[in-house]
Design a protein around this nucleic acid. Structure first.
Lengths: 336, 336
DNA sequence: CTGAAAGCGCTTACAG
DNA sequence: CTGAAAGCGCTTACAG
């Protein structure tokens, strides 16, 4: 049996059934204040009777916008972004917005392409962790009056909002924690490709220099294997390193892998401090001391910033800086 | 300085500049085979000169569809879904589709609401891990000729495709692994709310029964804390349990937490096998023996299934079952 | 308060 | 091969 094609119900069908014009139906559905209550009731009845659902595509064209926000991250499979995306989705959903997810793999070209799509789709706003903070398409979005809020790293266009964590300060905290515990040879697993990690590296280097210690960092480019091999190199160097700061959670995983492979005890033989607080950090071997970002709070702030812009309540850009929180567990080897 | 409002360029602007009709511009842009090559060249020049980009919203209305696929999961922050979403995004992107991300928190109501949005937006297809496999909106989607492919768990509507892993078989493998290692008292951390976990539980129970062992499971509802408390209860019971199977990765994390808290050595005092292979599993304490799903392959299959439907190349529904892969590491305590 | 009409920016039969 | 015209399904000044 071939299924009969059911023609979708349009606003004019509802209007006909209710005995009013399509304009009136539209007004009722869009909460226009002034509609005769008898008409209103009949419209509502007709809507229900027919199971009418407005065609979003038509609404979008008419209004020249889409009730969607674009979320652009470099890797949704990284817990940092997964947690952020989840929080953003929750905040957006409760405001009636949907999330268009854009995964860039850290490629400027993919970011460009996605931002172009977001502009073409006339999303209400964009939240992005920029792979390419100076991309023209960011300006193009803003030209279209589509608000943009950056996280992790600000973008160069001064019209964009931003919410970033104090990466430098967090690294200072981590470094001091280890210095105060008596460590003199502290290594840092870095990633020159990531702005956040570079900021952390800078905080580490300055803190080391300030107390006359020699910084010693190695780049690992964020894949777990690279974190492991950077760790190995650091261990093989003549530095006599006794403590390690992992620039991000991939590096921490890599460091753990290398340390486990060599049967080096953490924290007894090697202290470790990491950034971010993915679900596994508290049950790692040993439980990881971390500097955690307030991801939920950042997500809410970003959606709020977007909301202000969407409603035209603010013209001047804002840059929020939020603090990390130190969560001392076992890996740093200090009781506190 | 107030920025001048730049009126967006429309197809008629391009047509005027190129000295042709809007229809011709449209044909050139949509690769219609037969357009005079002189006209074609002039259109392309005009497009470039004006920086014209077709208005997607108008295209969507006209075509009554959107180049988007909806992806519906219960928790993007769970590595299982994060990895799946990433793989789906990659596969979709290379086919020119975008991903509308829908996070349901496992709530039937949120699933309903999202599927309604996806229908209203006339997405090209939907991939979902169903919270509510019998939701009417799934049928509504299919009525609109929007293909649906389920994963993790099939949906009841026979017109939907599905890609599921052999959860039952994987649990049989896990249980036999432990039985062969000599364990007689094997506990299972379950979650009656999750179809996948229930399937695994069934495989475990049958395998235990088949060799005359007494199954012993405790529900934990998937939050890490609950996994931990279920583990504690199992340890406190009089069963004398020597091995544990964690029904999913949250339960595994909870089990590890409880085991660490009690200083119970894994695998010496307690063997552990888990499902899925999140990034941290290989560096957990100890590295976890797992049954891993071929997530990437599942994602590709699902996008392929969608693609066949979108192009109308297939009418009869398909259900694919894929196998887990056993990855023996240290937590099960068998050298193999 | 309400309807007729225009229009959002495209695409696509239709006619030539 | 190409253009004029209709139309996708809404919303919203405009007039009454």
């Amino acid at each position: 049996m071939v299924k009969a094609e059911v023609p979708p119900i349009r606003i004019r069908d509802v209007a006909a059934l209710a005995g009013v014009s399509p304009a009136t139906v539209s007004r009722v559905l869009n909460m226009a204040p002034s509609v005769n209550s008898a008409d209103r009731a009949r419209v509502l009845t007709a809507v229900k009777a027919l199971g009418y659902r407005p065609n979003r595509l038509a609404q979008n064209l008419r209004r020249q916008k889409t009730e969607m926000i674009g979320v652009v991250v470099s890797d949704i499979d990284n817990p940092h972004f997964a947690t952020m995306v989840r929080a953003l989705e929750g905040a957006a959903y409760s405001l009636g917005y949907r999330v268009l997810l854009c995964n860039t793999d850290g490629q400027a070209e993919k970011q460009r392409s996605y931002l172009e799509v977001l502009a073409a789709e006339r999303v209400l706003g964009v939240v992005l962790s920029p792979s390419n903070p100076a991309g023209d398409e960011i300006g193009a979005l803003l030209d279209l009056r589509i608000p943009v809020v950056a996280f992790d790293r600000p973008v160069t266009d001064p019209r964009a909002d931003a919410v970033v964590a104090d990466n430098r300060g967090a690294a200072v905290t981590a470094t001091k924690l280890l210095i105060n515990a008596g460590h003199k040879h502290i290594g840092f697993l870095s990633n020159p490709d990531l702005f956040t990690v570079s900021q952390r590296l800078a905080g580490y280097e300055d803190t080391m220099a300030a107390v006359g210690l020699r910084p010693c960092s190695l780049p690992g480019y964020s894949r777990i294997e690279e974190g492991a091999s950077a760790t190995s190199k650091l261990l093989d160097s003549s530095e006599g390193i006794t403590a390690l700061i992992a620039g991000n959670n991939s590096m921490a995983l890599g460091a753990l892998r290398a340390l486990h492979a060599r049967k080096i005890k953490v924290p007894e033989e090697m202290a470790l401090v990491a950034f971010d607080d993915p679900i596994w950090a508290a049950v790692a071997n040993p439980p990881l001391t971390v500097l955690a970002q307030p991801i939920e709070q950042m997500a809410e702030s970003m959606v709020d910033l977007l909301q202000e812009r969407i409603h035209g309540n603010r013209l001047e850009p804002r840059r929020l800086v939020v603090d990390f929180e130190l969560r001392v567990r076992e890996s740093c080897g200090t009781a506190q």
